[in-house]
Design a protein around this nucleic acid. Structure first.
Lengths: 239, 239
DNA sequence: TAGTGGTCTAGACCACGGT
DNA sequence: CCGTGGTCTAGACCACTAG
């Protein structure tokens, strides 16, 4: 069975967004225009747009059109309040370890698949701060499979997820997290500039992606004294 | 302008689910049957079902029908792994403080609206454990407005959210959270049976509900030593 | 007023599940 | 086989936005 027509239109539009043909803030073709272009009815055009809407790629405005939205930055991931709100101003990110090949660690926060363990592992580590305070040490592991050239290229806008999306067309589809309160070990204490034995929030995450062979494993060590970790969820649409 | 037809059908079905006319695991009337019953077309019937699907009330099976689903227990809230997986077996919840009227605390985790502060405040506190370990102290505050009889009634199945849904038809629509790692204070240390100065995970939550005047404010103090706090998100539908 | 999205009708054909 | 949900057509009328 062939892919449904609305999924085809959906994919065409999504690619257009990801590749920048439709830029953030701009409008997609109107529903009637999509009907004419692709010889479909409005039901089908709307179904395609509905998918993009559900996934947060667009927002609709009655009487105006479908506008390309800023992709949710955090994808439901816990984000440091300052990061999303100060938007770059007083926020800094520095690499402790640039992406490089490593053997898989034995204490990965979630068990990896055999397939993953059979291929090489890319690791990178960053330190994130707000103003003059280091607030988060971020460690990331993932399989190098299908990510040719990743070690050589730079990050798009300094964002790992944006890089995956724009260079490799990989989207984050889900995550599994575990939260712990720990005493800071020496390495964390020195990086985050806190006393050893300070309470530290550790967030272990497994991100699943649109590539079934690729998961991202991360450990975030957070100093929550000045900047607690915040996030938001909305379950129901507001009509 | 009157409410759209599909919203009407949606509300009828949702009430049926909430009041138990359609029980968990049973099928709703088929799409064609809804068409006949309410004199609508399948487009409209499907739109109503789509809403229920999005909100997690039902799941659809091709060739079979729309089945009433167990409502997501945690509503995106971080849940203790043991709680969801052991499902009642080794899990226990005890009241430290039964629901009762109080004045609003000055250190509410999120600022409440004037409207809320003008009405009475209901507070209750519970201790949650897995096997013989106390893992979470849960403190809850919310306005008594519109919750007549709340202090007298028991919780439905021991669940606060189920009680709100089934007795007052109030659904959780979103949440805002802040995470902190803290040293245990004396009260927490004694309740959770850990050493004072142990690292404790504090989750502050503001739940918004389908009643714009009602928010739930909670503080969860978690001992994550044995049981880290886990949760899952899925962003994209799996087709 | 023209164009947009929101809702809805009345059909049709298909793929899937169970009998 | 029949009933289910999944997709799609070809229209229609409405409410909202903007020039």
């Amino acid at each position: 069975m062939s892919e449904s027509r609305y999924r085809q239109i959906y994919s065409i539009l999504k690619s257009g967004i990801q590749q920048g043909s439709y830029k953030i803030g701009n409008f997609l073709p109107s529903e009637h225009e999509l009907c004419r272009t692709y010889k479909i009815t409005r039901t089908t055009a709307r179904k395609a747009l509905d998918e993009l809407l559900k996934e947060g790629f667009i927002e609709k405005e009655h009487g105006k059109g479908s506008r390309v939205k800023e992709r949710r930055q955090s994808l439901g991931l816990l984000t440091v309040k300052g990061f999303s709100e100060a938007v770059g101003e007083n926020v800094h990110t520095t690499f402790i370890q640039k992406p490089s090949l490593m053997s898989w660690p034995s204490d990965l926060p979630f068990p990896a698949s055999e397939n993953e363990l059979d291929s090489k592992c890319i690791y990178f580590e960053r330190l994130r701060g707000v103003q003059d305070t280091a607030v988060m040490r971020e460690c990331n592991w993932f399989s190098a499979q299908g990510l040719d050239g990743f070690l050589e290229g730079d990050f798009v806008d300094g964002s790992f997820f944006k890089t995956l999306s724009q260079k490799y067309f990989i989207e984050i589809t889900g995550s599994e997290q575990e939260l712990r309160a720990l005493y800071a070990d020496e390495e964390c204490a020195s990086l985050l500039k806190v006393d050893p034995q300070s309470p530290i929030l550790c967030i272990s995450i497994k991100f699943t992606t649109s590539n079934p062979l690729l998961n991202i494993y991360s450990n975030l060590y957070c100093n929550t004294e000045k900047y607690p970790i915040g996030n938001r969820y909305y379950y129901l649409p507001f009509n």
